[in-house]
């Protein structure tokens, strides 16, 4: 999901940079003010941990494999501000040391994977686990749902940025990115939940004693929320107006849509008028995304049921290593 250099135009890159700087600044300030002094090395080494975890391959099918992104994992294990700092550091190092992700696209990449993904995931994790009762099973359901949603949201944001830059038309980028990442998100959710379950069984206090970190999450989250919402308005809202409206749909059906194609230039918001054939995927992706979200929630709940045996839940009861438990093939 790393955007390389050359794919974003100047306004999009600058908008991403401003949002990333503001978010990272807020995270740095919050971490410095609220986390204890001795959390500083932990954040640095945890960033190395996320980078290392991203390198572990998970076999998918037919020789292909996937890997973790880790944004929600970082948010759940370290808290939102530390997660923003950790994910941003990983992206900065990848851009400058390994040429993975562009330097001019760094702001946009930080917005997608270090602000939007961990923060949305964290809010959903908190919301769902509170909704379902706050025990381990509820938390795992929240982790799974948050990880899936944040992966898809980050992909949609990438599509918006590419479309806004005139690199890839929204009608192509949105279904492709959202569609592929609805599948990738399943893997991300599965890995994140399995890892959190391992940590929770071995060291439950790491998951349940968040209050000890001293971070006053409410006000900070509101600040992040405004930044993320602003970013989504900038990157995605302009595209929403290009979704097929009634007239366009009729025009496409009656076959006079091509008459509206005055200048077939791909690098402008007008591009959709030339794409009568592939305009419907955008709409159907939205519908599929809605259905997918509901399905993802149900699957997240089922996954949490599968991972935590009935009855044996609660913060204070380690249930033996997940490593040794008999695998379930449901």
């Amino acid at each position: 999901m790393h955007i390389p250099d050359g794919f974003l135009d100047a306004p999009t890159a600058i908008a991403g940079g401003v949002l990333a700087a503001a978010g990272l600044g807020l995270a740095l300030r919050t971490v410095r003010r609220t986390l204890p002094h001795r959390a500083v090395p932990l954040i640095g080494v945890a960033a190395a941990f996320i980078f290392a975890a991203q390198m572990l391959n998970f076999p998918v099918a037919g020789g292909t494999s996937g890997h973790l992104i880790g944004a929600v994992l970082a948010a759940v294990l370290l808290g939102p501000s530390a997660a923003v700092l950790v994910m941003s550091s990983v992206l900065i190092l990848q851009a400058f040391l390994f040429a993975d992700g562009g330097i001019t696209a760094l702001g946009a990449n930080i917005f997608n994977m270090a602000l939007l993904a961990p923060l949305l995931g964290y809010v959903l994790y908190r919301g769902v686990s509170r909704l379902l009762g706050g025990d381990l099973r509820a938390r795992l359901a929240g982790v799974a749902f948050g990880a899936w949603c944040s992966t898809v949201a980050a992909a949609v944001s990438v599509a918006g940025q590419l479309a806004l830059s005139g690199t890839v038309a929204w009608e192509v980028a949105f279904p492709a990115m959202a569609g592929v990442h609805m599948l990738i998100g399943v893997g991300e959710a599965l890995i994140t939940t399995l890892v959190v379950a391992v940590v929770a069984t071995a060291r439950p206090e790491l998951l349940f004693d968040r209050a000890g970190s001293g971070e006053r999450t409410g006000r900070t989250l509101a600040g992040y929320g405004m930044l993320v919402a602003l970013g989504l308005v900038v990157f995605i809202a302009p595209m929403a107006s290009e979704w097929p409206d009634g007239l366009e749909a009729v025009a496409a059906r009656l076959g006079f849509a091509h008459k509206a194609a005055a200048s077939p230039i791909a690098s402008s918001p007008l591009a959709d008028y030339t794409l009568a054939g592939i305009r419907s995927p955008a709409a159907s992706t939205v519908i599929a995304g809605g259905i997918g979200t509901v399905v993802a929630f149900a699957m997240a709940y089922l996954l949490s049921l599968a991972l935590v045996p009935r009855g044996a839940v609660g913060p204070g009861q380690p249930q033996g290593s997940a490593h040794n438990r008999a695998p379930r093939s449901s």
Binding site: V45, F49, A52, A53, L68, V195, V198, V199, L206, H323
Partner: peptide, 15 residues
């Protein structure tokens, strides 16, 4: 998958 997730989880604990 579970074993690899356990590797990541325990790597975090070691971290």
């Amino acid at each position: 998958w579970r074993a690899s997730a356990a590797v990541i989880g325990h790597l975090f604990l070691r971290t």
